[in-house]
Structure formats: structure tokens, C-alpha cells
Design a binder for these strands. Structure first.
Length: 494
RNA sequence: GGUCGCGUGGCCGAGUGGUUAGGCAGAGGUCUGCAAAACCUUGUACGGCGGUUCGAAUCCGCCCGUGACCUCCA
């Protein structure tokens, strides 16, 4: 029995600004598309948020029994820089600075992105298409839009005719923009003469002579407009109409608004049924930006090599921290908050280990396992309420520890159920892994055991000076010793 | 300037028209030779001013603060 039949998953659909029951078009199949990174630099905190958010959705949908095709693109066709730099392409610029071939830059940072995502335990998507590998598809879609009369050619470039489109459809219904306001608020920018109107956007852009990334087309040598890749690739792999499209709130306008316009102009229909947007990350209450000097890459977080960081934070701590906030809220990073999340994570993960060793007792004890199950699913069904889910896990964690300490009990049947539930929510749904189980060589393990067994004998002789010395020195290597009634436990701590 | 969002206790962060979020930090206790871990108990709260209501932190208005976006920039 698939769980999705008995769970009503509500998700906040940006299109209607309401929580709606998620109903797959063709259950058990679900198609979901998420805007991936432009690979011109190491991934930063801002990249981790959508990755973790939609990884949570991907995992939960799979947990519910859906067969999910998750498409997340890599934008490797450079896009133009806005500030100061006279419209220079990001990837080209990086390539010149680092004296690399543009595709070399793309490969390097794609690898870097994959590496950081893997460390965050973000599952790889089912398909990860690259914009540069779908030039034809983008040209075909541009052609369809042109044929339908919603685009025009101008000096070797192709532009989307927003005004024309708005007469037949509704430009702005996702982002809540009013076209007239957009037109009246438009800034005077250079290189706009080719457009009929300032609100028009490029489907295909003629390449300037210096532009290395270029492809032939019937309109001349050039490259696709930024918004087009997502429309073309999503429809290629998910069909003309699919279930979920996700991305950061910063992409809502113009990117996603333009995607809608493109799909409707090409096919006459909306492609996406549920639009989901994760909120942004701030650092010490400030927006993250290169100019503000608070731009932190994931590598820097993992190693602690940034002047704002007091220490390094493990990938799992970052992941846990993000999951403790709802994806729709802004999330503020600070050393204090990260450190707190790190400790909370250790607590949760050690409960998982305790649960493994917990023995059932005859008495039912205080845990209502059915209630726990209901609350856990209820939290996730409410627009991915990972913070509430985690709160319920902590509540249950207290019970597990109490039972382990002999102050509570659980029946064998309930224990089995609890292990399954607790484990699958922590590991499968939230995607949290016990990274503190680092590789300990068998030899090290034996040596520590030997030392602690000797310490046990020393303790029996009440030589606490020596026994404390052993414990303290082990602690200085990062080995935490915990004395038990008739033995000991130890663990390597970060 | 325009559009949209947010403002919760020392820190982070849920939630709700009248009943405990949770984590971290703090205080007290149990256990322990001492620790650690665990468990028990515990304080501090809803930006400001008005309004609606029997009752609002939760709804409405204004103000302040803050964030995102504003056309080829994730």
C-alpha cells in the first residue's frame, strides 16, 4: 500500500499563494524540475538552500511511494553580469581571469557543486541536463514561440513580445507584477534599442564578436536567452505539463514568470501545476553578497576558512540547520546558531544509536507510537514542516533515552515500529547521517579499549588520579569517555 | 520609488483568535569517586501605536525596522 494514498500532502503553491493538496497528474509518477546553479564559482550558502529544500521534497515524495523524476539543470551557458561590468558574460569573465577554456570553468565548478551537494547528503537528481547540451531544443522552442506570433526577430536576436502575450494571456500572474508598472518603472539600459519594449526578453541573443560561447542558428551566431533553457529542458524530460517546479524566491521574477510565458506562448498551456519557492539565506541578519564581504562558500563553511566563521561546521550541521527552519522563511546564519544546530544534531544522532541498543520491556510505557507516527506525517504533510518533524523527533528522543536509562519502557512490537519510523524519518526523509562515525581503524579501536580496560582496573583500586589522567588525555585527542555502571563507552568527537 | 515577504524569549526557530513548540545557552536537582552522557524541574516572548472582539502575539490599519525582486544578474 503506497503511503501517498493515505497522506494528504499540502504544498504552498506560489501560483495561488495558498496551500493546496498535492495531487500527482499520473500517480505514482511525479515530475519535478528545480532551477540549478550557474556554474561560474564555488557553490555558496545560497545554493545549499534550494538544494536541501527540494532534496527534502524529493525524499519525502519517494518515501510516500511516488516514483519521482527529478530534473535539476546546470546552467553552463553564461549569462550577462549586470553591475558595472558592461554586460560581460559570467563564465567568460571567469574563464579569462583564470585563463581557462569556458567549458573548463564549467566543468570545474560543476564538480565543485557535486562535491558539496554530496557532502550535504543531497541526492543527485534523476536527470541533470546542461543548457549547453540543449541548444537545439531551445532553438526549436524559440521557433514555436515565433511561429505563434509571440516573438520577433531584431538584428540577429529573437525577443519575446511581452505586450502581445499579455493581450492574450496574463504576464505577471506568478509574481504579482503589473505590466503597466513594469513598463513605467523600467530603467534606461544600454543595448535595449533592439527591443520593441523594455519588458521584452531575449529568447536568442546575437553573439558579439568577442563572445566565445556561440552556436549557429537561423537568426545568426548566438546563444540562448537565459529563461529558455528551463522551459526547453523541463518539457523535454517531463513533458508539456508536469507536477512541480521549484527554485529560489529570487527567481520568481523575472525568470519563472518568463518561463510561464514561454511555455504558454509555445504550447498554449501552462506547463507547471505547482510552483514552489524556497526563501533566502542571510548572514548575521544581512543579505549575503560579494560586495558586503559576507559571501561564504560551502567549502569555507566545511573548513572554517572564512573570517566570519569562528570554527568549521560540518555539512550535516548545515543541512540540519536548514531543516530546522521552514523552507519558506528566511534563514539567518550566525556562529551561535550553527553551533547550537550542531549540538542538536549530535543529540538526535546519538538517540539513533541508543535506539539500536534499546531492549524491549514488558510494559507499554509512556510512548504512544501511533500518536508519534501521526504527528510526524502530519508535520511533513503540512507543506514540508521539517521544523515540527524535528521537534517531534526530539520529543521522542527524550522518551528513548529515558527508556534506555530504565525509567520508561516499550513493548517489543512498538520498539520495532519505533525503530523503523524514527530511522526512516531521520535517515531517509531528512537525509541526516551520522558523520561523527568516522573511520576508526580496528587497531585504534583495540588500543582505546585496552587502555580503558586498564583504566577500569585502576579505578577499582581507587587510583582516581591516574584514571582521570587517562580520561583527560584521551579527551585531548578528541576521544570522549563516558563511564557506565560496569564499563565504559567512548566516542570520537569533532 | 514600486511589488511581495518578514519582525516571537540570551541565540536560532515553529505555531496559534482563549491550553507546552523544539533545539542551543542559563539555573536547580538525580546519577557519578569526580566528570561526561542521560533524565527531572525551571525562568525570560510575541517590534511600536491604534482598531475589531467577551478575549489577539494570532485579524485590520498606520508607523518603525528588515529582506527579496524591479527586465537579459543564482
Amino acid at each position: 500500500m503506497s503511503k501517498y494514498k493515505e497522506n494528504k500532502l499540502y504544498i504552498f503553491n506560489t501560483l495561488n499563494r495558498k496551500k493546496e493538496v498535492f495531487q500527482a497528474m499520473n500517480p505514482p509518477h511525479v515530475g519535478m524540475y528545480v532551477c540549478g546553479p550557474t556554474v561560474y564559482g564555488d557553490p555558496h550558502l545560497g545554493h545549499a538552500r534550494p538544494a536541501v529544500t527540494f532534496d527534502l521534497l524529493f525524499r519525502y515524495l519517494k518515501h510516500l511511494g511516488y516514483k519521482v523524476r527529478y530534473v535539476r539543470n546546470i546552467t553552463d551557458v553564461g549569462h550577462l553580469e549586470s553591475d558595472a561590468d558592461e554586460g560581460e558574460d559570467k563564465i567568460l569573465k571567469k574563464a579569462r581571469l583564470e585563463q581557462l577554456e569556458p567549458m573548463e570553468v564549467v566543468q570545474q565548478y560543476t564538480n565543485s557543486y557535486h562535491d558539496s551537494m554530496a557532502r550535504l547528503n543531497v541526492l543527485p537528481p534523476s536527470i541533470e541536463p546542461r543548457a549547453s547540451g540543449h541548444i537545439i531544443e531551445q532553438q526549436v522552442m524559440a521557433e514555436e514561440i515565433l511561429e505563434n506570433g509571440y516573438a520577433y526577430e531584431s538584428n540577429g536576436s529573437l525577443y519575446f513580445d511581452v505586450i502581445k502575450y499579455h493581450k492574450d494571456y496574463n504576464y505577471g500572474r506568478l509574481s504579482g507584477r503589473v505590466l503597466e508598472d513594469l513598463i513605467s518603472n523600467a530603467r534606461e539600459l544600454e543595448g535595449q534599442e533592439e527591443k520593441r519594449n523594455s519588458v521584452d526578453f531575449a529568447l536568442w541573443k546575437k553573439a558579439a564578436p568577442a563572445h566565445i560561447m556561440r552556436w549557429p542558428s537561423k537568426w545568426g551566431e548566438g546563444f540562448p536567452g537565459w529563461h529558455l533553457e528551463c522551459s526547453a529542458m523541463s518539457s523535454k524530460y517531463l513533458g508539456k505539463r508536469f507536477d512541480i517546479h521549484g527554485g529560489g524566491m529570487d527567481l520568481l521574477f523575472p525568470h519563472h514568470e518568463c518561463e510561464i510565458a514561454q511555455s504558454v506562448a509555445a504550447t498554449g498551456k501552462d506547463a507547471v501545476r505547482y510552483w514552489m519557492h524556497n526563501n533566502m539565506v542571510t548572514i548575521n541578519g544581512q543579505k549575503m553578497g560579494k560586495s558586503l564581504g559576507n559571501f561564504v562558500t560551502l567549502k569555507e563553511l566545511f573548513t572554517g576558512s572564512h573570517k566570519l566563521l569562528e570554527k568549521s561546521y560540518s555539512p550535516m550541521t548545515i543541512r540540519f540547520f536548514m531543516l530546522q527552519a521552514h523552507y519558506g522563511s528566511t534563514l539567518d546564519f550566525s556562529n551561535e546558531a550553527l553551533a547550537a544546530a550542531g549540538k542538536g544534531l549530535v543529540r538526535l544522532m546519538s538517540t539513533l544509536k541508543v535506539l539500536d541498543r534499546l531492549e524491549p520491556g514488558g510494559a507499554p510505557g509512556s510512548l504512544d507510537i501511533g500518536e508519534f507516527e501521526k504527528k510526524a506525517y502530519g508535520a511533513m504533510n503540512d507543506d514540508l514542516g521539517s521544523p515540527q518533524l524535528i521537534a517531534h523527533l526530539f520529543d521522542t528522543s527524550r522518551f528513548i533515552n529515558s527508556a534506555f536509562a530504565g525509567n520508561d519502557s516499550i513493548t517489543a512490537g512498538d520498539l520495532e515500529r519505533l525503530r523503523h519510523l524514527f530511522g526512516s524519518f531521520v535517515s531517509d526523509v531528512l537525509g541526516l547521517t551520522g558523520e561523527e562515525d568516522r573511520e576508526i581503524g580496528g587497531l585504534v579501536s583495540k588500543l582505546v579499549d585496552l587502555l580503558l580496560n586498564i583504566r577500569l582496573e585502576v579505578k577499582k583500586k581507587k587510583d582516581f588520579e591516574l584514571s582521570d589522567r587517562i580520561r583527560d588525555e584521551l579527551a585531548s585527542f578528541g576521544i570522549e569517555v563516558r563511564d557506565k555502571k560496569d564499563g565504559f563507552e567512548w566516542e570520537i568527537k569533532g
